[in-house]
Design a protein around this nucleic acid. Structure first.
Length: 929
RNA sequence: GGGCCCAUAGCUCAGUGGUAGAGUGCCUCCUUUGCAAGGAGGAUGCCCUGGGUUCGAAUCCCAGUGGGUCCA
């Protein structure tokens, strides 16, 4: 088994007189032009050496740095392409955020299935790395948001089957380009080291260099040339073996922020990248340092590189170490530095939010929306902590402005709405915590861990916040160090094994040719002729026999893209079989039938045209509704899921507020305008990259198709990648009726609508309902709302009147006397009375009797047999026991407090028997006391 | 996509299978005409909706609706 050592011996290094050295501090191997060099140059082996000592000839702003770098690579033969969105899930479904420039080309380009937009190319790609969130502000070099400038080349062996072939350039040229750029900005190449650092990721691997200059990693050059293979000859650090591929990808990453920082030599990267924001925040937070303090902060920053929480066990210790080195008190250092760290983090987080909202992410409890919400809340807390009185939307807007986003109004409005939601959460939580804290403070106990977990998991309140509030009322908190892992444990319920794959797997299927699809040529066609290529016998739903029929060509649309399958029949010479479902597997269309049409037979297919027309109308209408929603709600609206149907369809769209009734009507109005405009619906199959370049990633509303060509559907100004069947002109839809808007997730609104005939049917159905209601009320439909309201208030008033009357009746009964049997129990008069009313009436009567100083036993036969027993204060009879015995006689049970109890049973005929024995029961109960 | 929590007076919320509550706001009266005043009395309610269990459900179970929150 060989290692990668030979992969690092480049001809370029040989020619240029490089030396391979081993770092005396960490043992890493590196290449350098300086034969005397002993360390690799990267912290912790060396400190930063460029602070106050800029490493380039000139000082660059971020924008200047980016354009200098891009133009260098353009001169070196690269095509520059526009960056992709930070929301990577807009073109791939395996990750949420863009974390590197290579993400732009995964998975289809790196796998060789699609050609790159240019080759070689350079791109300055905005990236977000959530995993760095705790380092931001502290290390001086970490940012969550950054631009990774990558120059990429995609190489493949001649004669291979990939979407690109031939050798563009490989390791030597890549390193040469890197040094060229460094020299171009004035770096003395003797000071640069190339550390060998094998790279592994996503099933691929390869040699890689970290490029270090004056203590800072300025670039990583990755040479992806291996793929996972159990028999491979290279064993990598992940423990798997890898083998050489027949394609090779140059994947480089240059941190534009770090280059900017290097050019300026400021104490932190943040001051180089966001000088205006930092000054602004310092001013708002009222931070002023004496010369001596400023000097201390300045010196401390040179050591901040060692504060990486991923590598330092305890950040307090690490800071204490720095303080000791500077000869100051650790506490004093923290006091000075902490607010600055917060300010740095705020600047960075605001940029993250600007990217996220600018690229159309909507805050939510799921996906990227959740990440955005977390960042926003954290940022809001930091702003509050430093005591700056600046609305968060303003800070984010400053960044959005700088980044050149055009949807700044939407961004601001999203941020405001989200800050408000957070405020409500905090207020709600605060009240809850106060109560809890008082409770535990009274008992002199700390708030226990499981209460904290509950508060966090269900109400979003951090333990730190609980502690703050608790302290106000003198309560303490029992917060363990492993708090967050306890929360995580609560979510682990040992998820069951993955669902088994769907059997099938016939080799026969793999041998069949792709089915020729006729539905794209003529969406209105309904009849076709075909040859049965093969028939697979399957087990149907109820164990009945079912068949998957493969034809050479078909007009049946297989389920896909949220559009259900067509149904219909296949007719042969002897018999006709029903097609009940249609699915597609690797280009082969499977027609699920109830009978076997016979392999090799010649059949005529006929699809259910009424069903198909309705599905087409709904599908085109779906595009229109999304488009209308974007017009009305804003550009951030994206389709988050869709299901077409025959009677109605639904689409889920992202939006940061509830869609109210007025807005629904507006969307409906715009949608119907497009219908009435009767514009034609066009389909085309352009090259994927050309389509992306022209229309952007908004194309992929309904999912991301594979392949070099994609199918685009144009409806009015709307363009989407879509594989469905559509009507030819929007007018054919007739009308669109939005039936309902519901919030399916936070930030996702579901619009249910009907199109064409289905829309009319729904309106008719609703009118039927309204007329039925009007008939019951005996008014015209227009008078229904008013009448309903009048009836409802009248009904409520009557309820109150009835309650009053019942009470009066009860009092009359109680004072009228005579109606009931009176007996003496323990020196008090007891009244046993039958009153055939409901429970309220019985209770009122009993209350009235008790108020008169009498024991009450009231029974009713109105709804089964029911009793209420009331006992005045001081009479030694347990009402609950009496009721229990009486109720038992009618086959039921009962109970209640000793002074007032209820009970009953189903045996109404025995009610009088039970009442007649009530006196005895009372007597027994009294003597038992 | 999954987990958890919540829904009761206009508002904020208690409520333990047995007669629906508090604080605040509201109305009336009194006191005082002094700043978030004091006193007395009064009205508040489809206890989210629909099923189920039970003699009896605001309370327990199931489903739905609406909201919150954590995780991937």
């Amino acid at each position: 088994m060989s290692d990668l050592e030979s992969a690092y011996r480049l001809e370029y290094f040989e020619e240029e007189g490089f030396h391979r050295r081993e770092c005396v501090s960490c043992g890493a191997h590196f290449w350098t032009r300086d034969g005397d060099r002993e360390t690799c140059g990267e912290p912790p082996c060396e400190d930063y050496q460029f602070i106050d000592n800029p490493g380039f000839d000139a000082s660059y702003s971020l924008t200047e740095m980016r354009s200098a770098m891009v133009s260098y690579f353009e001169r070196a033969g690269h095509d520059s392409i526009d960056p992709y969105p930070v929301a990577a899930n807009r073109w791939r479904d395996d990750v949420l955020l863009t974390q590197a420039s290579i993400y732009d080309f995964q998975p289809h380009v790196t796998s060789g299935a699609s050609p790159p937009p240019a080759n070689p190319l350079v791109v300055s790609q905005p990236c977000i790395r959530m995993q760095d969130i705790d380092n931001v502000g502290k290390t001086g070099r970490h940012t969550m948001a950054f631009e990774m400038l990558g120059h990429h080349a995609f190489n493949a062996d001649e004669g291979t089957d990939y979407a690109y072939d031939g050798e563009v350039y490989w390791k030597d040229t890549a390193v040469e380009h890197c040094e060229g750029l460094l020299a171009d900005v004035g770096v003395s190449l003797d000071e640069v080291t190339f550390i060998e650092d094998p790279w592994v990721g996503g099933g691929n691997a390869g040699a890689a260099f970290e490029v270090i200059y004056r203590g800072l990693e300025l670039a990583t050059l990755v040479f992806m040339s291996l793929e996972r293979d159990p028999d491979g000859e290279y064993e990598m650090k992940d423990g798997h073996t890898y083998a050489e591929m027949d394609r090779r990808v140059v994947d480089t990453g240059y941190g534009v922020e770090r280059w900017t920082w290097m050019s300026q030599g400021t104490p932190t990267v943040y001051e180089a990248v966001y000088p205006d924001t930092i000054d602004f925040l310092k001013e708002q937070a009222g931070i002023e340092h004496t010369d001596e303090e400023a000097e201390l902060v300045h010196r401390a920053s040179k050591h901040a590189g060692n504060l990486d929480i991923d590598e330092v066990a305890d950040i307090e210790d690490a800071r204490a170490g720095i303080a000791a080195e500077l000869g100051v008190d650790a506490e004093r250092l923290t006091e000075l530095v902490a607010p600055l760290e917060d300010i740095y983090a705020i600047a960075d987080h605001s940029r993250v939010l600007a990217y996220m909202f600018g690229d159309g992410i909507v805050p939510s409890n799921v996906g990227t929306g959740y990440l955005a919400r977390m960042v926003l809340r954290r940022t809001k807390r930091l702003v509050d902590d430093i005591g700056a009185d600046v609305p968060l939307d303003e800070l984010v807007d400053m960044q959005a402005d700088r980044l050149g986003y055009e949807n700044r109004d939407t961004i601001r409005s999203i941020v405001r709405s989200e800050v408000e939601k957070y405020g409500e959460t905090l207020e709600r939580g605060g009240r809850r915590v106060e109560q809890l804290a008082e409770e535990y403070a009274d008992r002199g106990e700390p708030i226990p861990t499981d209460e904290l977990i509950e508060l966090y998991d269900s109400h979003g309140i951090q333990p730190g916040m609980v502690a703050d509030i608790a302290a106000d009322v003198g309560a303490t908190v029992d917060a363990p160090d492993d708090f967050y892992s306890l929360v995580a444990a609560r979510h682990d319920d040992g998820d069951g094994g993955a669902a088994g794959g769907d059997g099938g797997g016939d080799d026969r299927l793999a041998d069949l040719p792709e089915t020729e699809t006729l539905y794209y040529d003529d969406a209105y066609g309904s009849e076709f002729e075909a040859v049965v290529l093969d028939v697979f016998e399957r087990e149907g739903e109820d164990g009945d026999a079912a068949f998957d029929v493969v034809l050479d060509q078909t007009m049946f649309y297989p389920e896909g893209g949220g559009q259900p399958a067509d149904t219909g029949v296949l007719t042969g010479d002897d018999h006709t079989v029903d097609v009940i479902d249609v699915q597609e597997r690797d280009g082969v269309v499977l027609h699920r039938t109830t009978d076997n049409p016979g392999k090799g037979e010649f059949v005529r297919g006929q699809i259910d045209t009424e069903r198909r027309r309705r599905l087409m109308a709904h599908h085109t209408a779906t595009h229109i509704v999304v488009y209308a929603a974007r017009q009305v709600l804003g550009e951030h609206v994206r389709q988050a899921g869709a299901q077409k149907g025959v009677d109605s369809s639904r689409i889920d769209v992202t939006h940061y507020e509830r869609v109210d009734r007025e807005t629904v009507k507006e969307i409906e109005r715009v949608a119907n305008e497009i219908v009435r405009a009767n514009t034609s619906v066009q389909c085309e199959w352009p090259d994927r990259h050309e389509a992306e370049a022209e229309y952007g990633f908004d194309l992929y509303q309904g999912g991301i198709p594979a392949g070099e060509q994609i199918r685009l559907v144009h409806v009015d100004d709307d363009v989407q990648a879509c594989g469905g069947t559509h009507v030819a002109r929007t007018g054919e839809i007739g009308s669109i009726k939005i039936l309902n808007a519901e919030r399916v997730q936070d930030g996702v609104e579901r619009l249910t609508f009907a199109a064409g005939a289905a829309a009319v049917e729904h309106v008719q159905g609703q009118e039927d309902d309204l007329r039925a209601a009007a008939e019951v009320l005996d008014v015209t439909p227009t008078e229904v709302p008013e009448t309903a309201e009048r009836f409802f208030t009248e009904w409520k008033d009557r309820g109150k009147t009835i309650d009053d009357l019942k009470e009066q009746l009860a009092e009359a009964r109680a004072s009228g006397g005579g109606a009931g049997e009176e007996v003496d129990v323990a020196g008090t008069t007891a009244v046993v009375q039958r009153v055939d009313g409901d429970m309220d009436e019985l209770q009122a009567t009993a209350n009235a009797l008790v108020d008169g100083g009498q024991v009450a036993v009231v029974g009713s036969g109105a709804d089964g047999a029911q009793f209420v027993v009331g006992v005045p204060d001081g009479v030694p009879v347990n009402a609950g026991e009496v009721v229990g015995e009486l109720a038992a006689m009618v086959g039921g049970g009962g109970g209640g407090p000793p002074d007032f109890a209820q009970g009953g049973g189903p045996d109404a005929e025995r009610l009088d028997d039970a009442l007649s024995r009530a006196a005895d029961v009372l007597g027994d109960a009294a003597s038992a006391e």
